[in-house]
Every structure is written in structure tokens, then in C-alpha cells.
Amino acid sequence: MGFKLLSKLLVYLTASIMAIASPLAFSVDSSGEYPTVSEIPVGEVRLYQIADGVWSHIATQSFDGAVYPSNGLIVRDGDELLLIDTAWGAKNTAALLAEIEKQIGLPVTRAVSTHFHDDRVGGVDVLRAAGVATYASPSTRRLAEVEGNEIPTHSLEGLSSSGDAVRFGPVELFYPGAAHSTDNLIVYVPSASVLYGGCAIYELSRTSAGNVADADLAEWPTSIERIQQHYPEAQFVIPGHGLPGGLDLLKHTTNVVKAHTNRSVVE
């Protein structure tokens, strides 16, 4: 069995187990497998329904001669939608809004960016022009300005110390501490036991640490421990890039980060 097929099978099995364990909360999309990078042309966006009122959005972007996937989250909030992270750029984010209108038909009224990198804030200006209120932590807003990236308009308070959590509509926002970046936030959907790890969490097929220019490698494993301790009931975990899975993604990420750190020390 090929690795790609095995990865998709694991996603399907995880979703099936969740649907059985929580039949009222989960209505997993039966329309197909989780979209992969090879299936999404740059400039297009796919939506994948995880649970009743919960979707991931998947886009792709060219970077350094390669094409990478990027995940975000959409959560229903009454007759409105909360968006977590842009679709990595203005063109993708405009396509995301169009796809949401086509498939869901509810307005996106608020959006949260989970850290300051372009795959999370690139497209904020498109959201703002569409009347979406954009939010991020003060740290993310400051770092985005320093980096020359787009800056969300509103500040999220109460997320300055490791372990801080605040309720934001249908989700809980959690600051686990520094990891992929010093400002990275985690998003949890309690009604569906869905954990969105953003770039602080890796997919299972990833074996290298990737972009760690703004990471705190020493603190990252401790931050992941905080996530595990705060959300032990999480059933569906979405990484910032690639295929979702279960809580095993947290341990896998820790292993990859520690291996990278150990290699760096040896070198």
C-alpha cells in the first residue's frame, strides 16, 4: 500500500471513529477524501466538511520552486461564519470567499490569524475590503508590521502568557507558548472536538522541520505538551499544512522538532 493511500485511509478511519463516538456532533463529509496538494491548482481553494458547521479550507501556493498546501478553518456561528487564517495570499483568499459563498452561503463576518507569517495573514486586506472584521493577538499584529505583512485590524486580548485561553464565538483560542513562531495560536472547536494546530503542528508525513527561522526550538516541545494537557479530548487535529489526523500529530511534531534540534547540535 502506497504512503499517500495509507495517509488518506488514516484520515478516513479517524473521521469514521469520530462519527461513531459522537453521532450528534459529527456529520463528516462523505463526498470524498481530504484534498491534497496535487489536486488543488494554485489560485483555487477546496472546502472539506469535518463536522456539522465545521470545515477546513485548503489552498496551495508556490514557494521556492515548489507547491505547498495550506489549511485553515471555518466555523459556523449562528447565521454567520468565523474564518481562521487566510488562504495564503490575496488571490487565494478572494477564491476562498467565493467558494464559501458557493458552498455554504453564509457571510464571513470575523477572521482570526493564528500567527504573523504570510500563509496566515496574506489576504487580510481582501477580507477587510469584503467587510470582514480581522483579528490577531497584539504580538501577531506587531510582528506582521515588522515583517511588512498585512496586519489584522483588531487585537485579541488575554493571550499574552503561555497557557492563556479565551473564548471567541464558537471557538476557544489558546496560546501554548512559542513553537513554530513566538505568537502562534491554537484554535479548538469544543462542539466538535476539532483542534486546529496551525503551523505549530505537523502532518504525519512530514519528517523535516522546514521553516524554523522564527521558531523557538527549545520551547516548542513544552508548548505541545500544554496543548495535549489542555485538549486531551480532541479527536480531529488539523495541521497548518497537509493531512489531518488525531492527537498523534502532536507527538510526531515533537519528535521531528527534537530530531532537528539534535542534528543542529551535532553539526
Rank of each mutant, 00 (worst) to 15 (best):
T109R: 11
R206L: 10
L6V: 08
K258D: 08
P221A: 07
V166R: 10
G210I: 12
S139P: 07
S7V: 10
K251N: 08
G163N: 14
A259H: 06
T222R: 12
R167T: 10
I238V: 09
E80M: 14
E267S: 11
A259R: 09
R226L: 05
G89E: 02
K102G: 12
V256M: 15
L159S: 02
L82I: 13
L185N: 03
Q229I: 09
D64F: 12
F63S: 09
T114C: 00
L5C: 11
V256C: 11
P107M: 09
D52M: 08
P244C: 03
G43Q: 10
T254E: 14
D52E: 07
A59M: 09
L173Y: 02
G32I: 04
G240T: 00
L97E: 03
A87R: 00
V126Q: 14
G65E: 05
S31G: 08
P41K: 10
I84Y: 03
V265F: 04
I74P: 01
T86D: 01
H241N: 00
L173M: 11
D79I: 10
T253N: 00
E33T: 09
E80A: 13
T207F: 13
K4G: 03
V112R: 02
E33Q: 05
P23T: 05
L106S: 09
T14S: 12
G105Q: 12
G53M: 09
A179E: 03
D214T: 08
I100L: 14
E150I: 04
I100A: 13
V194Y: 03
R110H: 04
L247G: 11
A98P: 12
K4H: 07
Q49L: 08
G43E: 10
I186A: 09
S181C: 01
G148R: 11
P170Y: 08
V45I: 05
Y48E: 07
N71M: 04
E99S: 14
A133E: 10
T134N: 05
F116T: 03
W55A: 01
Q228I: 12
S139C: 05
S38P: 05
P244A: 14
A111M: 15
R263W: 09
N184W: 01
L106T: 14
S16R: 13
I50P: 04
P107Q: 09
Y175T: 03
F168Y: 13
H230E: 09
I58Y: 05
D125Y: 08
L106N: 15
L73E: 01
T134M: 03
P176E: 01
L73M: 06
V37M: 11
E157K: 09
L82T: 13
A144T: 10
S139A: 12
S30D: 15
S139I: 10
A66G: 06
A234L: 15
Y202M: 15
V42F: 06
G198I: 02
Y175I: 01
T14G: 03
P239G: 14
C199S: 01
A259V: 07
Q49S: 07
L249I: 08
W88M: 01
I50S: 04
S16Q: 13
S30T: 06
P138W: 08
A21K: 07
Y231K: 01
G210D: 08
V45Q: 04
M18D: 04
P244W: 13
A94H: 15
E145F: 14
Q103A: 07
R76C: 03
Y12V: 11
V75G: 01
A15F: 04
P176D: 01
T60N: 06
N149Y: 15
S38V: 12
G246W: 08
L83G: 01
G105N: 06
G210S: 13
N71K: 02
T254I: 05
N211V: 12
S113T: 10
P190K: 09
L5Q: 06
S137G: 11
A165W: 15
A51V: 07
T109H: 15
H117D: 00
E225K: 08
M18W: 05
V166C: 05
A94C: 14
K258N: 07
Q229F: 14
L249E: 00
N262H: 05
T222A: 11
R141E: 04
A234T: 11
L9W: 09
L73N: 00
L47H: 02
F174T: 04
S22V: 10
P23N: 04
L6D: 14
G169V: 03
W220Y: 04
A94R: 13
V265G: 13
I50R: 03
H260M: 05
L195S: 00
E233I: 13
R141D: 02
L24E: 07
A94P: 02
S205G: 10
N211W: 12
L195P: 02
I58N: 06
V126H: 04
H115W: 00
T140K: 03
I17M: 04
S155H: 07
G131L: 11
P69N: 11
S160K: 15
G123Y: 02
Q61M: 04
A179L: 02
F116D: 03
L83A: 15
L47P: 03
F26S: 07
L250E: 02
N92E: 14
A15D: 09
I238E: 01
S31P: 10
R46T: 07
L97N: 03
I74G: 01
A111T: 11
Y12N: 14
T140N: 03
P23G: 08
A218R: 13
V45L: 08
